[in-house]
Design a protein around this nucleic acid. Structure first.
Lengths: 203, 203
DNA sequence: GTCTATAGCGGGATAGAC
DNA sequence: GTCTATCCCGCTATAGAC
């Protein structure tokens, strides 16, 4: 809270990021954020023009960071297995920091696909890097390291296993009547599970 | 559209279900729904009291139906493999009918976990049936049919692989620049993939 | 049961003083 | 840069005529 010495603009941005992506208050109003930040509501508009603009900045920033780290891994010069392990690592790292990021991505992308299209494609060399990764997946299949399927489906499996547990967390907390801490232990166990599920061949 | 001979109340409900869960208009207003249904907006309030009440009815109905079919499968007297196959089948069946249902579930459950808690637990014999299914999963592990892990994580894997592709569909349409039809082909291919990924052992 | 008219409010946004 | 006061709009909801 005492970030008063820092620039107000940054403080508002940090608070908005916390409220939206950490606490998961998707419907937070400008008043909510201002109250949480301990500033006057008009300052949000002074610095960011509108609620929408503020939201987009923090959302875009978070997605860009996650996406950047993901591309960093799939573009680096390491083994395929190391890439999968690396992806799980960075994904978990980012999503434990901002647990509601994936839920917001799902929400926003379903609300207005065109608006957020660029967030997932318009990245320097992104198309190329993605294409190469799919090729690499195909090679692993040819070498019988992973089961035969369309490379995109392997890709989807990877992200399904990583992302879904964060999106659906409240369901399972309730369904299995477990604590937040217990769920985090399950999540930790998943890191290894995901890798072995993906890389295990059926031949 | 010409459902005028049918009761207006039902027609409004059907329209609301379509707008929310089929077309994915999560922020649809009472006016939107009334227009789509071709009725006066006040009729929504006449029959359902409020937008919230109307939404809850259609949402609850859809979730209850899906949940009912899922419990029907896991509670029936068939082999473990048949249960997994059956779950994939009913899940796909329901989600192709209402493609945005999973996204709404994720959204609603994250917004207000307590409010929707009952939707996932308060079902006659539900707790018991779930517990037995987890036990069955454990047995399969003991028999080396599936890899060793906490049964809950097997359960989460199952739903991750089924549900996530529906939630994240717009991302992949854009990311891989494919059509709706092409994505549906990928989804169809997944049915077999999901089963084989889950039931493949690593010993 | 179906309409018109209207009330009421919550939230975003801006003008203008300090 | 920060505040107070105010405007404005969209949406929900209801009252009351037909």
């Amino acid at each position: 809270m005492p970030t008063k010495d820092c620039k107000t603009e940054q403080h508002i941005k940090d608070t908005a990021k916390r409220v939206f992506l950490f606490e998961g208050k998707m419907m937070a109003t400008t008043q909510d954020i201002a109250d949480t930040a301990g500033v006057n509501r008009t300052l949000l508009h002074y610095y960011f023009r509108s609620r929408d603009a503020l939201f987009n900045i923090v959302f875009k920033e978070a997605v860009t960071k996650l996406r950047g780290r993901i591309h960093g891994v799939i573009g680096s010069d390491i083994s395929f297995k190391q890439k999968i392990e690396g992806l799980v690592e960075v994904f978990y790292d980012e999503l434990i920091e901002l647990p509601y990021l994936e839920t917001f991505i799902a929400l926003q992308i379903n609300q207005d696909p065109e608006k957020y299209a660029e967030l997932f494609t318009h990245i320097p060399g992104g198309k190329e890097r993605l294409k190469n990764f799919l090729k690499e997946i195909q090679q692993q299949m040819d070498q019988q390291v992973i089961p035969e399927m369309k490379p995109i489906n392997f890709f989807i499996n990877l992200f399904a296993l990583m992302a879904y547990p964060f999106v659906a967390k409240p369901i399972y907390l309730n369904m299995f009547d477990i604590t937040d801490a217990a769920y985090h232990k399950l999540l930790a166990e998943r890191k290894g599970i995901i890798v072995s599920m993906l890389l295990k061949n059926n031949t």
